[in-house]
């Protein structure tokens, strides 16, 4: 019977851990959404042959590479912090990368996806994995939204961007906008 009592304690602890992981995920994102600073990231057209479409829009954030500071060495796959600033047009700018957690500025944590290298083999431009590349929508709406997203960028050269909340290195994609209008509203209007 003593054994059973311990088993019960173990079971209850397991249930608590099982509940606390999703709860932590939610808490972290909620705090970011509420108190995080908002950044606007310009989006680019996506590869139309992505296999996993349907329930979400695959968003391609404009990613022109981040200059690596002189004297710093990075490798593909390194974990880095990306420092964020806002440019004159009000869009987010991935200013620089750092191996240490930055203080006083906004940043997000990610990995180097690939880089361009100088002749001596030192990385001079880093391309990082963007941790906010999916925008989930209702099943029937997502393909339409994606179509509209692509047409807006490719054919009509409309401005498409996403808003992202950033706080203590974590990010949450908040909304997808076409010409300043939320994609959900945009689809209803047109």
């Amino acid at each position: 019977m003593k054994n059973r009592k311990w088993m019960f304690v173990l079971l209850m602890s397991l249930f608590v851990i099982q509940l606390s992981v999703p709860a932590y995920m939610i808490g972290n994102r909620e705090m970011t959404l509420r108190y995080g600073k908002q950044f606007k990231f310009k989006a680019e057209p996506i590869d139309p042959f992505d296999a996993f479409r349907g329930r979400y829009v695959e968003v391609n954030i404009r990613n022109e590479g981040i200059d690596v500071a002189e004297g710093e060495k990075y490798m593909t796959g390194d974990r880095v912090f990306v420092l964020l600033e806002t440019d004159a047009q009000g869009f987010a700018l991935m200013k620089s990368i750092s191996k240490e957690r930055p203080k006083g500025t906004d940043y997000f944590e990610t990995r180097i996806y690939y880089g361009s290298f100088k002749e001596d083999g030192v990385m001079d431009k880093a391309y990082v994995r963007i941790p906010f590349s999916r925008y989930y929508m209702e099943e029937s709406l997502a393909p339409k939204a994606e179509e509209e997203y692509n047409r807006s960028i490719r054919e009509q050269n409309k401005e498409v961007y996403v808003t992202v909340r950033v706080r203590n290195g974590s990010t949450v994609l908040e909304g997808l906008f076409i010409e300043g209008v939320r994609v959900e509203e945009y689809l209803k209007k047109y």
Binding site: I26, R29, L33, F52, Y56, P131, F132, S133, R134, L173
Partner: peptide, 10 residues
């Protein structure tokens, strides 16, 4: 939760 907060496919 991943869907609600647009967490990408990690």
């Amino acid at each position: 939760i991943g869907q609600t907060y647009n967490i990408p496919g990690d």
